[in-house]
């Protein structure tokens, strides 16, 4: 069974008097442990799609299954619980909690979202700090580290709960080119090491070249030959 399965997925926003068709009936599947990119011009519906996969938004119609769950029907509370359990998020603006240290930012979901015991927490956070190469900065505050380092911390935070799926909407848009490459590289390494599925969006053609599966969106529709290759089942 695929990790994400979408069939005739539609999303309509009502803005004032007019309906905006952001996603106009798309079908796709995302296999577990794959490294997927959604690409397309601005306004093509990338964020809308990622938000629906991430249970932050409901589809207007169509079928959407994520981790064997029909997420179209989840209410607020259930959606929050589902996200906390199965999905990690990486944001364009990093969105670390400014009053917490690097270590505490990574630890946050283990306390506030899930309830891990202290010793298990320490082991997990230390492991991820090492994996993203931030062990030396554990006690720094977010405003004391660079953008690339912030995104590393964010990736560690997204992975800390052993999420099956990490969604990253334009994770490199606020980074310079080299750093962007390194962040995508880190995500791929994490996928290799932990088997986590990564889905990100971008409109940088070079970055999208790093993806193993590319879905191209155009005005809310999926462009036909979509998959570059299907990989990631090691």
């Amino acid at each position: 069974m695929s990790l994400v399965f979408a069939q005739n997925l539609q999303k309509t926003y009502r803005s004032g008097e007019v309906d905006v068709l952001a996603v106009k009936g798309v079908d796709f599947t995302i296999e577990a442990k794959s490294f997927v990119a959604f690409v397309g011009p601005s306004g093509s519906g990338k964020s809308t799609l990622l938000n629906m996969i991430g249970c932050l938004d409901h589809p207007t119609s169509g079928k959407l299954t994520v981790v064997n769950t029909d997420v179209a029907t989840l209410d607020r509370r259930a959606a929050a619980e589902f996200r906390g359990k199965h999905i990690g998020f990486v944001f364009q603006d990093f969105n670390l909690i400014p009053v917490l240290t690097v270590y505490e930012n990574i630890e946050y979901p283990l306390i506030m979202v899930q309830a891990w015991p202290e010793a298990k927490r320490r082991k997990q956070v230390t492991r991820l700090l090492e994996a993203v190469g931030m062990s030396g900065q554990a006690s720094k505050r977010p405003d004391q580290i660079s953008g690339g380092q912030k995104q590393r911390v964010a990736i560690a935070r997204a992975l800390v709960t052993d999420a099956k799926l990490v969604l990253a909407d334009e994770p490199t848009a606020n980074l310079d080119h080299d750093t962007a490459y390194r962040i995508i590289g880190l995500m791929k390494t994490m996928r290799d090491e932990l088997g986590t599925t990564f889905v990100f969006s971008t409109h940088d053609p070079k970055i999208m070249g790093e993806a193993e599966v590319v879905f191209t969106l155009e005005d809310g529709r999926m462009q036909q030959p979509s998959a570059k290759a299907v990989a990631g089942h090691a």
Partner: peptide, 13 residues
């Protein structure tokens, strides 16, 4: 935005 972040990653209301 911070509230949006912690809410997105699944912090219960």
């Amino acid at each position: 935005r911070e509230i949006g972040t912690i809410s997105a990653i699944g912090t219960p209301p």
